[in-house]
Amino acid sequence: MAANTNTDAPVPDILAHAAETASAAPSIHNSQPWRWEVDGDRLELYAERSRQLTATDPEGRMLTISCGTSLHHARLALAGWGWQAEVDRFPDGDGDLLARIRLAGAIPITAEAEQLLRTIGHRHTDRRPVANRPVPSDALQALAAAAYAEGARLQLLHVEQVDDLASATAHAAEIDAADPTIQNELSEWTGGERSQLGLPDEVIPSRPPQTNVPSREFSGSGSLQIGDNHDKSASYGLLYGDEDNPLGWLRGGEALSALWLTAVRLGLGIMPISEPVEVPAGRQILRRTLSYLGWPYLAVRVGVPADETEPEATPRLPASETVHKH
């Protein structure tokens, strides 16, 4: 373990730095729907409704999960710098204030915290097919343990359950395709050239990949070159929890961040699959897959990358747009 060498830094600067690091977190369609406020010794996370996908995500389910990934990134940054974060989730009850963080003192820096912090810069969504190599079972258990530590669970799916996921995803895609409002929103957030928000062509496959679970059909042409591999060696899982409410969604996002960064540390790729959870009918199919023991937050594809080159990074808003100091 290493000692904390940053004890003399002003607390507001430490918190602002953590919030800036947290801005690298994944979010639905790269909407970055969060706002961080530094107020003295407090760092507060707000839902930024101006970046909510109101057609795709009217309840704010995916917005809140996205904000949860950013919250976990901020917590991890503080731990990696040797600070204990005291987190109060939904301190004012329902509303847009999702979490409040205070520093609870210096702590030793563990090797695991340092390693996970370094993975933030290498985490990305890779929509390319995976290698024809199975994911080691101990690695899958490590992902499940990472999610469990954050208050959610990861159910690894067997073949018949992957068929359920494929069915739920295909059904959701049909619903989305028939809704012009959702299609217009998809066009607004994906495809083309982008400098701050949304998904540019560079991260969208140039043609539909061969998959067991259908991929979301994005707008734009897509220019990400993909090989001829099939995802038959991939593993699929359902991230779920006990509560289908904003607190559950927030914790689900924290768990997603934890398992994703753990996957990066283990040399694995993660592709989130949110489409079936975005529609009530899809959620019911996945609830049945879970034997009604929990509420699905997101599905994930886990695989060994077939291509060692990292795809283009999605753009990010400048820190001045997402982090504010008072």
Rank of each mutant, 00 (worst) to 15 (best):
L286E: 01
G93I: 11
G227R: 10
E217Y: 09
L76H: 07
L154M: 08
P200I: 05
L53A: 05
L116W: 11
E188L: 13
L15D: 01
P208G: 09
I182H: 02
S167A: 12
G303E: 06
H230G: 14
L103S: 09
A25F: 08
A24M: 09
S187Q: 13
I107S: 08
M62H: 09
T289P: 03
T21E: 10
P33G: 05
T64S: 02
D164M: 01
H17Y: 13
A77D: 15
L157V: 05
Q32T: 08
Y236M: 02
F218D: 04
L156H: 01
R127E: 04
A166E: 03
V323H: 08
L197A: 04
L98C: 11
L238A: 01
Q155F: 05
A146R: 04
A234T: 06
G269H: 07
W260R: 09
P129A: 00
D244K: 00
I273A: 03
L117N: 02
G40T: 08
T289W: 04
P180Y: 09
A111D: 11
H17V: 11
L266A: 04
V277L: 06
A77H: 15
V38D: 07
T211F: 07
D307G: 05
G267M: 07
L247Q: 13
T309I: 12
R102G: 04
N6V: 13
N212I: 13
S221C: 12
D244W: 00
G252K: 00
A131L: 09
L247E: 12
P200V: 08
D96M: 08
F90G: 01
K325N: 11
E278R: 02
E275H: 05
L63S: 05
E275K: 00
E312V: 14
G253F: 05
E114V: 14
G294Q: 00
I273H: 03
D138V: 15
G192F: 11
G93S: 08
V279I: 12
P205C: 09
F90E: 08
Q141C: 15
T262G: 06
G105R: 01
E174A: 12
R287H: 02
Y292K: 02
A144C: 14
P296G: 06
Q284M: 14
R301M: 07
L43M: 15
Q161R: 10
A147P: 02
H171N: 12
R100C: 12
E174I: 03
L266V: 01
L268T: 05
I175R: 02
H326K: 12
D179Q: 04
S223A: 05
T309C: 10
D96K: 06
S66T: 07
V159P: 10
H230K: 11
E112M: 14
P209K: 02
V135D: 03
S195P: 10
P205Q: 06
L199F: 12
Y297N: 00
I273W: 01
